[in-house]
Amino acid sequence: PPLPPHSTTLPSHFMKGAIIQLATGELKRVEDLQTQDFVRSAEVSGGLKIDSSTVVDIQESQWPGFVTLHFVVGEQQSKVCLDVPPEHPFFVYGQGWSSCSPSQTAQLFALPCHRLQVGDVCISISLQSIS
């Protein structure tokens, strides 16, 4: 069987007010980040690229208290599953922070979130392929 997700506690970088350093050196609060901040950071960081990861299914996880998110990732449309706690925020293109349980995200991190839904396109990163 697959290993359980590593932790039920998320790092505090999702806490409202957390200071985030972009690849350009600019500092922003997590709640102020915009799509362009991620896109620009990936452009200047080298080695990393931003992928569009579309949520195609959201299910209860086999691990209690987790949800399983199914994505299709990047140009290759690769299928990737991720077990996360429902309060885990994802950054959706053109929308901003979104989670399966915006109320839990607000409770734990005070971070305003939309509800993550099937069809949402999230920002993810992968290694830039060398061709």
Partner: peptide, 25 residues
């Protein structure tokens, strides 16, 4: 006296998942 508090700064890439697509056939 109030001691200055250190502020944690997190890198941008820690906020988004690393989803490595499987290699194409």
């Amino acid at each position: 006296n109030v001691e200055p508090r250190s502020v944690a700064v997190f890198p941008w890439h820690s906020l988004v998942p690393f989803l490595a697509p499987s290699q194409p056939d």
